[in-house]
Write a protein that binds this DNA or RNA. Structure first.
Lengths: 118, 118
DNA sequence: CCGTCATATTGATGTCTGTCAATGTTAGAA
DNA sequence: TTCTAACATTGACAGACATCAATATGACGG
């Protein structure tokens, strides 16, 4: 029931505490690695950049700029969405994607340094 | 020549502008993907967590907690340091590692959303 | 110099991953 | 319904990666 690859939602709880605060558990590390893994590909980074630059972007508007085949685009949108970084909505025949700012900030906070050492 | 603190100097320039600001170039995407790639492994995340929790950590103090062989530890420290996330100093026979807060913040800023708070 | 300890490097191996062609699925149009 | 367009899924393959055993490097102590 829980560990179903797309179960990132429930993991929001155990996710994203600053790296230096406490030592990551094995489970947290695996979960977090999945998120950063989604960000570790040049095509997905440019894809996320394209999506985050607009309110909404259709899948069909990604193939051209990214220079990848349709199955490959579908593959990458899936990984980004499973990481919670983008969300999609199907309207008619088109799939519309938008970034998830809250999630991006949440992930950013993992890396936020322990502040000015005060 | 400007920011020459870490060995990654050249990449610091083209790196780390917020994803939504402007569309990533291919080169920027490749560069950024390398950084997130360093963060996409559970062992390296726990390793970075361990290092960031202390002022300094010896390589020899990582094998135990992480449960990996010595060559594997060396492999992972190398990847983290090449990404600029940790820095090492060899004193005697021991290698001492410390996190690079500036770099972590820099990477975090890549994901910082364009001021949502709507 | 010799032996030992901490780390780096090399080589081999099993696994993961990005890619696309082919095919399946679903929604609108004719 | 039948045809077409937009995506998703499957299967296959090449390249990348994590891992460890074996070996090399380099620093200390005797």
């Amino acid at each position: 029931m829980p560990t179903s690859r797309i179960a990132i939602d429930s993991s929001l709880v155990s996710c994203c505490s600053p790296l230096g605060d406490s030592e990551l558990s094995e489970a947290e590390a695996v979960e977090t690695a999945l998120i950063f893994g989604a960000l570790s590909d040049p095509v997905r980074l440019r894809m996320l950049s394209l999506i985050a630059s607009e309110d909404e972007v259709c899948s069909c508007a990604l193939e051209g700029p990214l220079g990848k085949s349709q199955p490959t685009i579908s593959h990458h949108t899936r990984i980004l969405s499973e990481a919670g970084l983008i969300e999609g909505e199907k309207r008619g025949r088109w799939m519309w994607w938008h970034a998830v700012p809250d999630r991006l900030n949440q992930v950013a906070r993992i890396l936020a340094a322990p502040l000015p050492t005060s």
